[in-house]
Write a protein that binds this DNA or RNA. Structure first.
Lengths: 245, 245
DNA sequence: CCGTCACTTTGACGCAGATCAACCTTTGGA
DNA sequence: TCCAAAGGTTGATCTGCGTCAAAGTGACGG
């Protein structure tokens, strides 16, 4: 079934959209093209406020956005990290349930919500593809719940680094070329919001992992991983890291 | 769109399945009937082991099942709570990613996976309905992540009680009849696994909420809620509890 | 009727991570 | 070139929850 679908490169998007897959031969592409437009956001800018009316759905073309929830007293938890090709929005619901914020500068490929919903209703493949993507996200959310509920600070940091490494590797489809290295796209505070920690604890645990030789730092943001298995062990992940390399 | 779908009461199931919705007039129902069968599980029995081949998908007819993840050293986190009408399984994936366990005695209405997938491919409405359900689960998972990452033990307990109250209210479609009261379907240990706590902390916080008059206990499992707003306030939930009543 | 077993409660104590605070490093703009 | 602001590190202290331990409470079977 999956092989019937292709990733659509719509117009000038540098990234193939997982969101807008369709059978190669159909005219769905043309329909998608008609309702599509681009929006750019600066780093730090809020793309959608929780409770806002959602006028569009779409996918991230470049940059990184995050889904967050905030309590009245300011406690904040990240509940989704959106990398290029990730889909935003939910057909069938009119208001957003979470804040969406541009972590870096972000370009989104948007589709007006109404026509997109019509398209879904008429085009089974898109609904099936969205279902597949949503199930992937749900699985990821559940792994994330184990992290939040049961892992130690050190395990959380190790997990985050290997998650980012895994997603980056998947995106670029590159095999592990000797030394594995990753750019952390998040500030310490954003990592803390991801992991359910404070930024001080994040900083301390990164320092500890560095001191123990599990990772190497070049600057604040760039991490090299001399021994991936060691990192995965530190992450406490029993799911084998086979997907990563 | 939603109103085109009806809940199908398949055969002798006491609960209407959200999972098998279809347009009233189609013959999809007949197809579903053909591939459907029932399975019963005793309390404590494992329905599916993580990593197992999934032979079926299905929905919970009666009883309560839980989705859990366990680390090598035994730390356990619940990542899904399945009440009657909830769907289990994921079309398009052959092995289970999480353990599914019967918390109480459970009856499931199962569909053999292959034919069900074929049905999905041919029947857009089912895929759309599954998408809708999966998006709901994803939203719930994200609320859960806020709970795990940022809430205090007391807030977690208050949240759990109001979540169960909400789901029970939604299931029975009953309005709040004066005093709101709930049966906790979980042991203290299962609540701890849900909330990312230990069973001792769960017990202590329940006692504290009782002492402070937020809840009343009749036996260990039955909770009465004299003031719902008070409970929601204790839960730290900014999402208004409007759905609950 | 009692003993066992599963579940729960309660207490004492310790520690991982939060909090508060000071200082360092990098970046960008006037 | 310097200053200011944002981001990051590190230290001292505090505390919420985990850990270990013991005793209480049904429920069920013999």
């Amino acid at each position: 079934m999956q092989d019937h679908f292709v990733h659509v490169q719509c117009g000038d998007c540098p990234i193939r959209h997982r969101a807008v897959c369709a059978r190669c031969e159909t005219d769905e592409l043309a329909q998608l093209e008609q309702i599509k437009y681009y929006r750019s956001f600066q780093a730090g800018q809020t793309i959608i406020w929780s409770g806002d009316r959602m006028e569009f759905v779409g996918s991230v073309v470049s940059g990184i956005a995050s889904l967050t929830q905030t309590m009245e007293d300011g406690r904040r938890q990240m509940v989704g990290l959106l990398l290029p090709s990730d889909f935003v929005g939910r057909p069938g619901r009119s208001t957003a349930a979470f804040d969406v914020t541009a972590t870096t500068d972000v370009v989104m490929c948007c589709f007006r919500k109404k026509p997109f919903e019509t398209l879904i209703a008429e085009t089974p493949h898109i609904a099936q593809r969205l279902l597949e993507m949503t199930l992937d996200e749900l699985d990821a959310a559940r792994e994330w719940m184990l992290l939040l509920g049961r892992k130690t600070a050190r395990e959380k940091i190790a997990s985050l680094i290997s998650i980012i490494a895994r997603r980056e590797a998947a995106l670029h489809k590159k095999k592990s070329s000797g030394q594995l290295s990753v750019d952390l796209p998040l500030t310490r505070e954003e990592m803390a919001d991801y992991l359910g920690l404070t930024l001080e604890t994040v900083s301390r645990q990164i320092s500890a992992l560095k001191k123990d030789g599990v990772i190497t730092l070049e600057g604040n943001r760039h991490v090299s991983i001399p021994d991936l298995d060691r990192l995965l062990e530190e992450a406490g992940d029993d799911t084998d890291g086979g997907m990563l390399v």
